[in-house]
Write a protein that binds this DNA or RNA. Structure first.
Length: 305
DNA sequence: AGCTCTTCCTGAAAGC
DNA sequence: TGCTTTCAGGAAGAGC
């Protein structure tokens, strides 16, 4: 699942191949994930790619303007890889894998190809004004957010910390894997309420998030099922996952057994010893639950599905 | 405000 | 063996 480190890896790869190249033509397969497929086919041929950058989990291809392009033509191509999206540069003659739905022919004989098995991705063309709106809608980038801004965005929020980490309008770039890994590193239970975290804990979390994302970028992302970089190579960070997809395996820190619960609608992996659960304010049953029994009070109130 | 559920989609894995 | 069911999840929207 492409999150910030995976998208950053793809962007760095594309940066070595795309800037300066012209899009000669566009070929489309299924288009239900494309905002406006007709516009894509009409306004991209002839455009030169000026720059590649990352905005949260979006890949942003900036298109240069030139004399033959009308002034109001959109100049930003945004690509979100969703769950299974891949964006790779290949020689035009090379066979494309199944579920390849967009081909951008480039002027150097290569193709930029978008492959997406589940088509949870997104592709859209934006004007300058809209790109500003998008940036506004998204939160601060997780990799570079300052301690002060991180505090400001979380402090007082009554949502569970896991939900906030995943909320792209709060923080952009973190998905399920890196949320779980960061919470483990910061020793915070995913169901803790942000409002109940101390300043120290919030800062520990920010450091954990940035450390985990930085390490993952260095190893070119995590390849769980589908992720590959712009050259088609898998990442290496999945070998360093401490909790994600490690249910029933021992914690690397304390050897307790890793649990998995649903928090904010997402499966969440954590160590029940390193990441103690929040005390549940079960409506004043205090009299009836002497807190000597740790084992039973550690159990999360589970909702049977 | 924030939670849960649903929708989109496919393939892998589990269940029978 | 072969079918059916379940699950995974990023993001958005509905409903509570």
């Amino acid at each position: 699942m492409p999150e910030l480190p995976e998208v950053e890896t793809v962007v760095r790869g594309l940066r070595t191949a795309l800037p300066g190249r012209c899009i000669v033509s566009v070929r489309l397969g299924k288009t239900d994930f494309i905002d406006d497929p007709v516009a894509l086919g009409e306004s991209l041929p002839g455009r030169r790619i000026a720059a590649v950058e990352r905005i949260g989990k979006f890949i942003h291809l900036q298109l240069a303007s030139n004399d033959s392009v009308s002034a109001d033509a959109p100049s930003h191509l945004m690509v979100h890889l969703g769950m299974t999206g891949r964006l790779v540069v290949r020689a035009a003659g090379e066979p494309a894998p199944p579920h390849t739905h967009v081909y951008f022919q480039l002027d150097d004989g290569r193709e930029l190809r978008y492959t997406d098995i589940r088509r949870f991705g997104q592709m859209l063309l934006l004007h300058d004004a809209k790109i500003a709106q998008l940036r506004e809608r998204l939160g601060e980038d997780a990799l570079t957010i300052s301690a002060e801004e991180f505090q400001r965005r979380l402090a007082g929020r009554r949502a569970r910390i896991k939900a906030l980490l995943l909320d792209q309008s709060v923080l952009r770039g973190v998905g399920n894997i890196y949320a779980d890994e960061s919470l483990w590193r910061a020793r915070l239970h995913p169901a803790r309420l942000a409002a109940k975290l101390s300043k120290k804990e919030i800062d520990r979390l920010r450091q954990a998030v940035q450390r985990v994302l930085g390490d993952a970028i260095r190893l070119r992302g995590s390849s769980i099922s589908d992720f590959v970089d712009s050259d088609g190579q898998p990442g290496g960070y999945q070998k360093w996952h401490r909790v994600y997809a490690r249910e029933d395996q021992p914690c690397y820190r304390c050897h307790a057994i890793i649990h998995r619960v649903i928090v904010a609608g997402r499966s969440s992996h954590f160590c029940p010893r390193c990441q103690p659960p929040p005390r549940t304010p079960r409506k004043r049953r205090a009299r009836r639950t002497p807190r000597s029994r740790r084992a039973s009070s550690q159990k999360r109130p589970r909702r049977t599905t």
